[in-house]
Design a protein around this nucleic acid. Sequence first.
DNA 1: ACTGTACCCTGTAGGC
DNA 2: TGCCTACAGGGTACAG
Length: 300
Amino acid sequence: MPELPEVETVRASLAHALIGQRLETIELRRSDLRFPFPERFVERLSGRAVKAVTRRAKYLRIHLDSDEILVVHLGMTGRFILAPFEAGVPIAGRGEIVGTYTHESGRLPQHDHVVLRTSGGTVVTYNDPRRFGYMLLLDAATIESHAVFRLLGVEPLGPGLEASALSERAAGRRTDLKAFLMDQRNIAGLGNIYVCEALFRASLSPKRKARTLAGRGGCPNDRSVRLLVAIREVLEEAVAAGGSTLRDYRKPDGSSGAFQERHDVYDREGERCRRPDCSGTIRRMTQAGRSTFYCPSCQK
DNA sequence: ACTGTACCCTGTAGGC
DNA sequence: TGCCTACAGGGTACAG
């Protein structure tokens, strides 16, 4: 679910709630998500202060005063929920008393896998029905060489995204442009929604071969420049709107993102193309096992 | 090297 | 109402 704009929105909320606070209690409700939780997870988090909350690609990084970094990937349905702490009411049948975050039924809320309380009085809950998310605890000094970060491509909203970098990586590649952009080693942080939207804005077909982004000798061409501008614009607008809420995604305060209102193609199969000079209809097809939405008449 | 498929897991929507 | 299928913002392990 969450792509760069959604993860960035979560990051900002967590930063506000966590920076300068200590993690006072941690309740772990199961031993694994997609992968097992790190060894001695609760012990290594307990009492730690949060120095910073950053993002790389779709990964959240919570920097602790122990010089370890809690890395969280939200997978498809992972989300954080922030709620004020009200003392004295247990939320679980076992473990520690952390707050009043209870379900109306009186049972544990479904899929709340990690619940922690900060010294600032906030209860932070990680909820993830499909459990495709995961958490790691890594040494700050060596984090960039860890397997999940080492091969990641350029950050699209940072200074590293230039048409030349895109074109060089695309040169000679026979893979579909859609798949090329979904590959986190080429550009980090795009997912199904924003790849579809960026290709539409750049008027490029998702079926086009990636190598057509490169001119002679792997140089940028007008297509790669157009695409780069489109990627930046769509991500910046989506971040400003708090991301896209289609099904599961929520901002940590429980509210929805707004960018889904501005999707030109994603989830608009059968509807009219929004380009004023185009009379096409948005189509859906499958590429690499995922839905691609596009306008066949103006994306070439 | 590169590409496509299956799979991890749960929930929901739509057809019958 | 239920039962069945298809599908979902991600990533990885395979087979070819």
